[in-house]
Simulated scan of single mutants.
Amino acid sequence: MFQIIWIVIVGAILGFLAKLLLPGRQAIPIWLTVLCGMVGALLGNYISSVIGVRHTSGIDWIRHLLQVVGALVVVAAGSALYPQARSRN
């Protein structure tokens, strides 16, 4: 149970950080920001495990950087796709 709460907290932090770093305004709701942050964290973890830097001694700076980059990509994609999905209804 605590792991799910931790995933949501990290997703929120990464999602809002990505919204701050992206230029312009991202008109996506809070729930989508958190979801995009969660997906970005998973994407960063996957890439770090593929290149072999997921588990290192000390703080995993490369993994965290890849998580932020993953969140940037997913939030940008989510903000680009969200108005189109809303206009179809």
Rank of each mutant, 00 (worst) to 15 (best):
F2H: 09
I4P: 02
I5E: 07
I5G: 12
I5C: 09
I9W: 05
G11K: 08
A12D: 08
A12M: 13
L14W: 01
F16E: 11
L17K: 02
L17A: 15
A18H: 05
K19E: 14
L20S: 14
L21E: 03
L21Y: 10
L22N: 06
L22G: 05
P23M: 06
G24L: 09
G24R: 14
A27E: 14
I28L: 15
I28G: 08
I28M: 15
V34C: 01
M38F: 14
M38Y: 05
M38K: 00
G40M: 11
G40L: 04
A41P: 00
A41T: 10
L42M: 07
L42V: 08
N45I: 00
Y46Q: 13
I47Q: 09
V50T: 14
G52Y: 10
R54C: 00
H55C: 02
T56M: 14
G58I: 03
D60A: 15
W61M: 11
W61H: 11
W61E: 07
Q67G: 13
Q67T: 04
V68E: 09
V69P: 06
V69G: 09
G70H: 04
A71F: 10
A71P: 12
L72E: 11
V73H: 12
V73F: 15
V74F: 01
V74Q: 01
V75D: 06
A76R: 15
A76M: 12
A76W: 14
G78H: 11
A80L: 13
L81T: 10
P83T: 05
A85T: 07
A85C: 11
S87D: 11
